[in-house]
Design a protein around this nucleic acid. Structure first.
Lengths: 230, 230
DNA sequence: AGCAAACCAATTGTCTAACAAGTACACATG
DNA sequence: CATGTGTACTTGTTAGACAATTGGTTTGCT
């Protein structure tokens, strides 16, 4: 069905489209993606489809063993915890750095403005600007490696999000308010407070995601959420 | 020259051998690696060589633009700073966690014992157990994502090391002593102290590496070397 | 002679076709 | 019912070929 695409690289174009389809939920978890199927649906050769698949496997969006068909990754609650812990490690340190220089990234401000702008629409609409907000903070550090690491984490988060269709659990107003507070703390140079708020922000998102995925909340679910009012 | 190799995957075998040759310094920075050359030297088909190259490009060991020959990555001082900053972000938080649980990884103890054992030999010999020490700490956390991130950083560090042949700047005894101190601080549950010592440990290694690389002729040789002040 | 444009060799991107090897599931058999 | 076998499907790898791009070289014009 997907028509022939051509861009800078056919492999990249195919991988990019598959990525979108995975994030949109069109391709669900554990769905099989054979090389020949992809090759025929995009009207490309099998090696091209193979390369695109391997790209996504390297990104963690697909999984496959030797001589086995690639499948959309099925991330469990423990994976979500790993991902969010890694996010917290990177992002909290970045916040301390930004606060030390009182650097408020313009892109992050804009991203949060976009979140505030969307009052309605599908619940998944908040995912993109939310990820953009956090990515903007990371990118403001100007560290290529850290940005790349964070990108891979964001990709996995989006994969998790696509699994959870009942996203009324995403409180857009709360997300926007906490982002705003983060920016203010950075501007005030209060790095420790910003890092602490971020930990709560990510921790709550993580627990809601784990809960929505049907996973049992872990033993460390007892974070006092009342701290957020602050 | 390189004889035919066969393992679980030919692509992985070729990539693995190239990796060793890069780390050993046999393949120097900016050296061109054409697909046909690799294919003929390993007696594999060109697509296989291509896949191996792309694997190493994804790892950051090789770089290449579209339609251009792959080359061994040439990391400058700013890359070294990025890499070591990322290492510090991840590893210092991991140390705090390990100290909180008073978890002293047996593999790290063994790795440091190996460093103590080698009193002589080529200066590059200390690189492997040193990296193993740090990787053991990270792996003890049991977080798959963080371990993978750290692996990519280690690979780039080893690439830098291979560029610096005059490694008398590596003080084996000092490295071993600081590692020992780190383990003791973890055992004592003093996470903050361990994190602080690690920052110094990594900071010193970074500055030595930058200084050693700065003396050589690099593309960014014209920037004031006084920035490296130690 | 000097500079610019066209040409050419080398390399990569992609495709087609094919065979080998491994996996998974159904089927037959004890 | 359990177990072994076999067959279809899928992936791993190869060979050869052609298009597209890059970079250097050569040619042509002033």
């Amino acid at each position: 069905m997907a028509s022939r695409i051509s861009a800078v690289s056919i492999v990249e174009a195919v991988a990019s489209d598959l990525r979108v389809r995975i994030f949109s939920g069109e391709l669900v978890s554990s769905q099989a993606l054979t090389e020949t199927d992809i090759a025929s649906s995009y009207e490309v050769a099998r090696p091209t489809a193979k390369a695109a698949i391997e790209k996504l496997v390297a990104e963690g969006l697909l999984v496959r063993g030797v001589h086995k068909t690639a499948r959309v990754a099925d991330l469990g609650p423990e994976s979500v915890r790993d991902i969010y812990l890694a996010r917290a490690y990177l992002e909290s340190e970045v916040l301390r750095r930004l606060a030390a220089g009182r650097t408020v990234p313009a892109a992050a401000v804009q991203a949060n403005r976009d979140i505030a702008a969307l009052k309605t629409g599908a619940p998944l609409d908040v995912v993109e600007p939310d990820m953009r907000f956090h990515t903007s903070l990371i990118d403001a550090l100007g560290n290529e490696r850290i940005s790349k690491m964070y990108s891979s984490l964001v990709a996995e988060v989006r994969l998790c999000m696509s699994r959870v269709q009942s996203l009324h659990l995403l409180d857009t107003a709360l997300i926007q308010a906490e982002h705003q507070k983060l920016l203010e703390l950075i501007e005030a140079g209060q790095g420790e407070d910003a890092a602490r708020l971020l930990d709560q922000h990510l921790g709550r998102a993580r627990e809601r995601l784990v809960a929505a995925m049907g996973g049992e909340a872990g033993p460390e679910a007892e974070l006092p959420s009342s701290l957020v009012g602050e």
